[in-house]
Design a protein around this nucleic acid. Structure first.
Lengths: 109, 109
DNA sequence: TTGATATTTGCAGGTATATGCAAGTGTGAC
DNA sequence: GTCACACTTGCATATACCTGCAAATATCAA
């Protein structure tokens, strides 16, 4: 699967912010979206064990989902001892959303 | 596939705006994201034929992709004669993005 | 009516994704 | 060292998805 979109002919690549399908794909799964909501609810870096059980999936699956979220720049992962703390990466999420907001702004002009 | 996420235990459903995985999943495909960018570039309601050829997929595939984008509330479709005009639905996109922005705001508090 | 245009849908293929269970890795406690 | 803990990864299965081609539908033009 492509990591970035191929800019269509006639579209100025600089016209819009970065548009990465992997970012949206990562959020396009109900479990991962629930994990994001739950991480926001907890409001602090949390472990796989802590967030498991909120989505009805095995913790191994949660681990995999968190990896996908991390690779998409949605969460950060920090290892401390035998625990890994996952937290929302607000800055990266914001910048990933800019591509879309730019499109909407361009439309209203 | 679930249409909405199941709210994790301990999360107040009213705390965040609507979070629909189908919205993000629709944008999580390189072709569909390119279509969105191209529709924005054209800046006007456009037909399947017009946007086809910008993504290297058969027009039948483009038709299917546009249907997915429509069902996700990203584009509108209006039939006029034998043509169907697709256009970005800025309002719906904006409101779908609010769920995420709400999360980010809640984090910074 | 006949034919061209515009789009949608059925079908079949290949590929990708999500899941649970079990096994593996690494770290800390004793 | 030995054990439990926290997490990750391999494997197998089932499901979902994207794609092109061809056929079907619908509208307009002549």
């Amino acid at each position: 699967m492509a990591r970035t979109i191929s800019i269509p002919l006639g579209v100025d690549p600089a016209q819009f912010g970065e548009l990465n399908p992997d970012f949206f794909k990562a959020l396009g799964d109900p479990v991962r979206l629930a994990l994001v909501a739950y991480l926001a609810h907890l409001g602090k870096p949390s472990t796989v064990t802590e967030v498991s059980g909120c989505c009805g999936v095995d913790f191994s699956g949660v681990s995999r989902h968190l990896k996908i979220l991390r690779e998409a720049g949605i969460v950060t992962a920090e290892k401390r001892g035998r625990k890994t703390y996952y937290a929302l990466d607000a800055d990266k999420i914001t910048s990933s959303l800019h591509g879309l907001s730019d499109i909407l702004e361009a439309l209203s002009k």
